[in-house]
Design a protein around this nucleic acid. Structure first.
Length: 551
RNA sequence: UGGGAUAUAGUGUAAGGGGUAACACACCAGACUUUGACUCUGAUAUUACAGGUUCGAAUCCUGUUAUCCCAGCCA
């Protein structure tokens, strides 16, 4: 109940109840291909596998599924491990590489050949496609299907020895050339690729395919529950075939959960890569992206990300989760933990006409009103202040509680002021407000008991430190990008997904650099200092604001 | 078109082997408030559709529809 029960837990609970496994034997894995950066969709797979291991006291492996040398690189290997560790999903079962099992894959293949369950096929890619048929065309057996064991063994070894060019031969499983599941129509197990592997170098020129390698990797690592996303469900019969025909005992089993999408963003690695490569975003960690490194740079926390996935729930159907839930999770956490600071994003000068020219007084403001233990800080107050432009309205809209001509407002933690004059420049723009403070109030309530509805934030002109602030918004203008053909994604990119403010005025306590600390800039949202741009804060998420201008 | 999977409020997840549809987020309406934050209260569903069994069905039966996945020597 507190912890989301899901169908996978039910399955495993049953296995344990039946005595199939002890809880400590439960062993899971996260098997990314190192061909890109992890994103929040992958975080679901991580969370599921990792949390299962944790829940039962079993082990969790990280395994790079690097069986295709042409797509993988060490850059991604490093990035994935960094992200996984940052997420605090510790791979306590170990870190492995699919490529470390190439020898095993090779030996098991020879066994399958000897058992008459695999053969070397000379069909070209095109011919193979033709023989295999499609949804409504029957498959035909390859003319090479009935080669003798000796011939197959010989040919396979020569494939390995590099005697044949790429694409000239494959090792195929002998299953069923006319299975309704096209994947089972004698799938390829090994292909020839004269390519250098990021870890194996030039040791191999034949590489196993996913469907063959994956169950072997799982079995050799002692994985009990191989949980993957639902697009692999049609692969399960082949997974089972490999396990059974190699004869693993005990053997792993595959379970599928529904993939997750998030509104207003993309999970397609292909498209993310394009955005990065075309320079449309500032790298894989551009704070607008759904990658883990972007969320990290943006200021999201691992706990908020996992909480999001936990709350979203785990089921067999494909879900499009509202990004509001992610934002809620980080707000909830930061609301309780982030220290409050005053920051004026778009400054407007206010002069307190009845306040002495050279006086500075300090008000104590709580670091976090929801948590007294967070303590207080002193904030200097002087005659000249910056307030937020949007906190003043010369012609106030209905239900506007902030500053207006002749109106009163509370300066947070300090005096109540009344706006007496609005100073404009030649162009008619408001450049300064002249206000009078009710000095008697200090930081208490007005003596006469009058109610002041609005509270605004402020910072002393003399003490303010300046910085840049960047607001981020959704990547796309529509909630569900899956409704659109991938070739049209560009048309839905949000042109206002990033808004930079320069010359923002921050309270002086922010001059001390505490990198990585998340703050609530009062009434402006939660912020973290950017790791790439000097003196710049990223807005993690906005504060909820129930005031909606315009009536 | 062959095979497979899924259908519960705007979104997502719950309702151990039939008994008044629950929770979270979003949204709306109020209360509170020295952050219009937080907190609190209230409102929102003929359980894809159509039949059937039953005193009673989201749960059982039959049929229909919609969406997603699969025709890489990618993972």
């Amino acid at each position: 109940m507190g912890d989301n029960a899901n169908f996978l837990y039910e399955i495993i609970n049953r296995h344990i109840a039946e005595g199939k496994y002890t809880p400590e034997q439960i062993h899971t894995r996260f098997p990314p291909e190192p061909n890109g950066y992890l994103h929040i969709g992958n975080a679901k797979a991580i969370y599921i596998n990792w949390s299962i291991a944790r829940r039962y006291g079993g082990k969790f492996n990280l395994r790079y599924d690097d069986t295709n040398p042409t797509k993988e690189s060490d850059e991604f290997v490093r990035a994935i491990e960094e992200d996984l560790r940052w997420l605090e999903a510790e791979p306590d079962g170990g870190i492995f590489f699919g490529s470390d099992y190439f020898d095993a894959c090779y030996e098991f293949a020879k066994k399958l050949i000897k058992d008459g369950k695999a053969y070397v096929c000379d069909l070209s890619g095109e011919e193979l496609r033709e023989y295999r048929g499609d949804y409504n065309t029957e498959g035909r057996p390859s003319p090479y299907r009935d080669r003798s064991v000796e011939e197959n063994l010989d040919l396979f070894e020569r494939m390995k020895n590099g005697e044949f060019p790429d694409g000239s031969k494959t090792l195929r499983a002998k299953i069923d050339v006319n299975s309704p599941n096209i994947l089972m129509r004698d799938p390829a197990l090994f292909r020839i690729r004269h390519a250098s592997h990021h870890r194996q170098g030039n040791k191999w020129c034949i590489y196993p395919l996913y469907d063959y390698a994956h169950p072997i990797q799982d079995a050799l690592e002692g994985i009990t529950h191989s949980c993957c996303s639902d697009e692999f469900i049609v692969h399960r019969p082949l997974y089972d075939w490999v396990c059974e025909n190699i004869g693993f005992d005990p053997r792993p089993y595959q379970y599928e959960f529904g993939r997750m999408d998030v509104t207003y963003t993309v999970m397609s690695k292909r498209y993310l890569r394009r955005l990065v490569e075309e320079g449309r975003v500032d790298g894989w960690d551009d704070p607008r992206l759904p990658t883990i490194c972007a969320l990290r740079r943006r200021g999201y926390t691992p706990s908020a990300i996992f909480e999001f996935i936990r709350r979203a729930g785990i089921d067999r159907n494909r879900a499009t989760i509202d990004i509001n839930l992610l934002e809620y999770c980080i707000r909830e956490e930061l609301g309780a933990t982030a220290e409050r600071r005053i920051a004026v994003i778009e400054p407007l000068k206010v002069v307190i006409t009845n306040y002495p020219e050279n006086k500075t007084e300090y008000f104590e403001l709580p670091n976090n009103p929801t948590n007294p233990d967070a303590g207080v800080r002193s904030v200097p107050f002087t005659r000249e202040l910056w307030i937020e432009k949007s906190d003043f309205a010369e012609v106030p809209p209905p239900k506007f509680f902030r500053l207006k001509p002749g109106g009163e407002v509370r300066l947070m933690g300090a005096y109540i002021i009344r706006c007496n004059d609005v100073i404009k420049n030649e162009k008619g723009e408001i450049v300064e407000l002249r206000c009078e403070a009710d000095l008697a109030t200090g930081c208490g309530m007005p003596k006469d008991g009058r109610k002041i509805k609005g509270t605004i934030h402020w910072v002393s002109v003399k003490h303010a430190v300046t910085a840049n602030v960047i607001y981020y918004d959704h990547l796309f203008t529509i909630p569900n990008i899956n409704e659109v053909d991938p070739s049209e994604y560009d048309a839905y990119l949000n042109p206002d997904s990033m808004k930079k403010y320069t010359g923002c005025m921050l309270e002086p306590s922010l001059s001390e650099d505490r990198g990585g600390v998340r703050y609530q800039f009062v009434r402006n949202g939660y912020f973290i200092k950017d790791t790439k741009n000097e003196n710049t804060y990223n807005r993690i998420v906005s504060l909820k604001d129930s005031y909606k201008p315009q009536a």
